[in-house]
Amino acid sequence: MTWQKVGVPILAMAIFLALWELLVWANGWPNYKMASPSDLWPAFWKFRELFFVMGWDTLWRTVVGLMLAVVVGVGLGMVMGFSRVMRDALYPLLVGFNAIPKATVVPIVALMFVGQHDFNTILIAFMISFFPIAVSVSIGLSTLEPEYRDILRSLGASQITVFWKIALPKTLPEFFGALKVAVTLAFIGTNLMEIVSPHGRGLGALFDSGKTNSDYPLMFAVLIALAFLGIVLYYIVVALEKTFAGWAERSPT
């Protein structure tokens, strides 16, 4: 880790907060129009225990939903990547499903599984985030040059061997690209459920209670907490990518 890698992002964040503070101060906005960064810390400190409890609820449900999206997304991607017929059959269905705004699905899911808050939240996080994973894996597999297959097939290797030795590792860069998008989407899904169908858990519920009690700094503090969790998860994915698909990164020369 060089100074540049750590220092530059921190400096950028400090500048951003300063500009925000300046904007609110210069316009003389009251905190119900826009809270300033200096209002956020007191709001956070006042509800610090709730932040940790609710933040954990949001975090674990997002991660479980995301893991489900990875399993199902990779599975669908493999089916579509290896079979033309399945690709033709599933693509329009998936595109149609993805086009439905998930905010409209939330009440349906909430009715369908009344009271199963954890399950519902995970389900929405999963539904909103598996699409990019399925598409990227299927494209990665179906665009494998035939020569790669021939090299192993001519030696008598099975399809499974071709998949493990070549197709899977070759698709990893695309997979991680999609996973970075999916992380953010899964967060949106979790919060959508927590806000639209409130059940008193998660950062979304905390946001909702801030709204009900006209505690505007709390609402902004929740947004910042969500952003923070999003950044943490994103960089965990980046670290995984470096470990498993670091070879795809060309050193700048």
Binding site: E145, E147, D150, S154, L155, I166
Partner: peptide, 15 residues
Amino acid sequence: STVGMAFQNPVLLEW
């Protein structure tokens, strides 16, 4: 397995 192949594209595994 008694055959070896090489193509115009060297198709080496980048990883």
